[in-house]
Simulated assay, not measured.
Amino acid sequence: MKKYASKTLLVIAGPTAVGKTAVAISLAKKLGTSIISADSRQCYRELTIGTAKPGQEELKAVHHYFIDAFPASEAVTAADFERLALGYLEEIFSKSDIAIACGGTGLYLKALTEGLDDMPPVDPAIVSELDAQFGEAGLLWLQEQVRTEDPLFFEQAETGNPARLLRALAFVRSTGKSITTYRTGTRKDRDFRIIKIALELPRDLLYKRINRRVDDMMKAG
């Protein structure tokens, strides 16, 4: 029998500025529950401008997990989020039948609802060395290294994303294998019910909201 068969996770997703936070907070107040932030930048205490964190009044009104949980100097991965979020759910479900996850980092939401593939550890020394080399040599150097050492990943990769390229390169240098060989796509069975809500707005209205948000952030400093 599933431990949390009677429990439900509401997942609020959607593009930037569509109104995810407002909807999540409104639902959390009505349902008497807490929110897990599924945002890869809002977890850093020093990153406030540009991350659209909930305001202080909103944070007081509803308890949020994962916001301001780490210093910016600490790397946080989707696997870290999966582990932490499942722990947050244990705490929330001990008090409520419903929990809410809200955020714009799709990989984090996938990690929470479907799980991630198990990966062998990466050598921290290799990670540090690559970070330093990337800082000196730049993106073109990084792209060429990945193209040479893990061509299978490079064919599928978002080649303009240095974080993913660095992870793939560190992985192949640590294990001798392409990171793609560990991607099985197997979905983990969660023992709670999951309801996904995707918010949308007409493009013109969404762009106006994004522009207004940027203006507000600039005014805030």
Rank of each mutant, 00 (worst) to 15 (best):
A170V: 09
R187A: 14
R187L: 15
F154N: 08
I25S: 03
F66A: 08
S174H: 13
G55P: 12
A170E: 04
K30A: 04
K20M: 00
T33A: 04
M217T: 11
E200M: 12
G106Y: 09
G103K: 03
E82D: 08
L112G: 13
I197Q: 12
A24R: 07
A24F: 01
S6C: 07
A75H: 06
R83E: 01
D68S: 03
K7D: 04
A220Y: 11
A69L: 08
T16H: 11
L142A: 00
R183A: 14
R187W: 13
G176D: 15
T184C: 13
A69M: 05
G103I: 10
H63Y: 04
Q156F: 02
I92Q: 01
L201I: 13
A101M: 04
W141M: 02
G103A: 08
K196Y: 07
I210E: 08
E82I: 03
T184S: 15
K7G: 02
G103Y: 08
E155T: 14
V172F: 11
L109T: 12
K20V: 02
R183F: 15
F93C: 06
E155A: 15
K2Q: 03
K177G: 11
F81I: 02
K3D: 01
A163D: 05
F70M: 02
V172K: 10
V122I: 15
V11I: 07
A132W: 00
V146K: 02
E46I: 05
A79T: 05
I126E: 06
L130F: 04
P54M: 10
Y4P: 00
E200G: 11
E136Y: 08
D215W: 11
E136M: 09
A157M: 06
S34T: 08
I12F: 00
T175A: 15
V146F: 04
T77Q: 00
N161K: 07
T148P: 02
E155R: 14
S178D: 15
R167A: 09
S37C: 06
A157L: 06
A85P: 06
I179F: 13
E200R: 13
R167Q: 04
A69E: 06
L107I: 14
S174F: 11
A125P: 00
V11L: 01
I194E: 05
M218V: 15
Q133D: 09
V76L: 03
R203F: 13
W141S: 01
R193E: 12
E57V: 14
R213D: 01
A28H: 06
S178W: 13
S174M: 14
P71G: 08
L109M: 14
T148N: 10
G106W: 10
A137Y: 01
T186W: 14
I36W: 02
G176W: 14
L130D: 04
S73G: 01
